[in-house]
């Protein structure tokens, strides 16, 4: 099956959206070729705005566009969108609940060779804590397109976390339907174990399940694309039939999906939870697959950790 990066799918979906909806504008900060907003430049150059290497200003300008009725999609690397421009996102976008879509690419260790300065491992945490902010991480190209179309219809601030590396297509089923805030059951298992994954970790979890099956363990797998507002109902429904929960994210285990899941479980259905993710350390240079391996995110490392957890 073809592997496509979610950022690639983003560029295509945004260009198509811009053609359909004249209110859509694309904003970038000298990374249009990487974030793929340059796709908009090809079809609607008058609605693509480069702000240069000035992320704070870009987010402020996005707020201004939204004030005057436009639907701004602002893109840069996740580390800069959520870090450099945090105060702008919080105070000029989040607090006034403006209709700004922050589509941040190059999240996580799959950034690869650029190393720790460019690998956002805390952006889900930073964005999730802003009141009223919707936080979404699509798992594949199909889901990315659905996300971009859905958030254009939704009125309010959204943070979308996209990746640099190509990922497998997961949501290929003809009855796949995307809805903000509704998790997707990827695999119905038979063991009292539920894996809850987001982004690239959905494909890793899928592969891990194949190996676990060989050992007689057959966990459920849920894709939580919307980290906020999280699908409490689905998580609780699966927790009720599980003794063990495994959260998987290409993000720090502090503040991201794992935390969001445990916040639901602690209130509604306490369960033992394994937090698969980056264990409160910075990343480093390397190939994406090497980093996934080293930081315990690759499928074989997931299997190891799950087996240890179930002992």
């Amino acid at each position: 099956m073809a592997k496509i990066a979610t950022r690639e799918a983003y560029g295509k979906a945004l260009a198509a959206l811009a053609l359909r909806n004249p209110d859509v504008v694309a904003l970038d900060a000298d990374l249009a070729a990487s974030t793929k907003t340059n796709e908009v430049k090809k079809v609607a150059p008058e609605r693509h705005f480069d702000f240069g290497i000035a992320e704070a200003n870009m987010i402020g300008a996005a707020a201004g566009f939204a004030c005057n009725g436009k639907i701004p999609f602002a893109s840069t690397f996740a580390i800069f969108a959520s870090g450099r421009a945090y105060d702008q996102v919080r105070n000029s976008v989040g607090y006034p609940h403006l209709n700004v879509k922050i589509c941040a690419t190059h999240a996580g260790v799959t950034v690869g060779e650029d190393g720790a300065t460019h690998q956002a491992l805390e952006d889900l945490a930073l964005m999730r804590v802003i009141p009223g902010m919707t936080v979404i991480q699509p798992a594949d190209a199909i889901e990315t397109e659905a996300v971009i179309n859905a958030i254009a219809e939704y009125e309010g601030p959204v943070y979308v976390r996209l990746g640099r590396a190509a990922v497998e297509e997961i949501n290929t089923s003809p009855d796949y339907k995307f809805e903000i805030g509704k998790g997707v059951v990827i695999h119905e298992g038979t063991s009292p174990v539920t894996m809850i994954a987001t982004g690239v970790m959905v494909q890793e979890a899928q592969k891990a399940i194949e190996t676990l099956n060989e050992q007689g363990i057959n966990p459920n797998l849920i894709n939580i694309h919307t980290i906020k507002p999280i699908d409490e109902e689905l998580i609780v429904r699966y927790a009720e039939k599980s003794d063990y929960i495994v959260s998987l994210e290409e993000h720090s285990v502090i503040g991201g999906l794992g935390s969001a899941v445990s916040e639901v479980l602690a209130r509604k259905c306490p369960r033992k939870q394994l937090f698969i993710g980056v264990q409160d350390v910075f990343g480093e240079s390397g190939k994406a697959n090497q980093l996934m391996e080293k930081y315990g995110l690759a499928a074989d490392r997931v299997v190891e950790q799950v087996l240890e957890f179930l002992k």
Binding site: G64, F65, P72
Partner: peptide, 10 residues
């Protein structure tokens, strides 16, 4: 001022 830039561009 950045917000003003966005409004003016719109």
């Amino acid at each position: 001022l950045s917000v003003g830039v966005g409004m003016s561009l719109a």
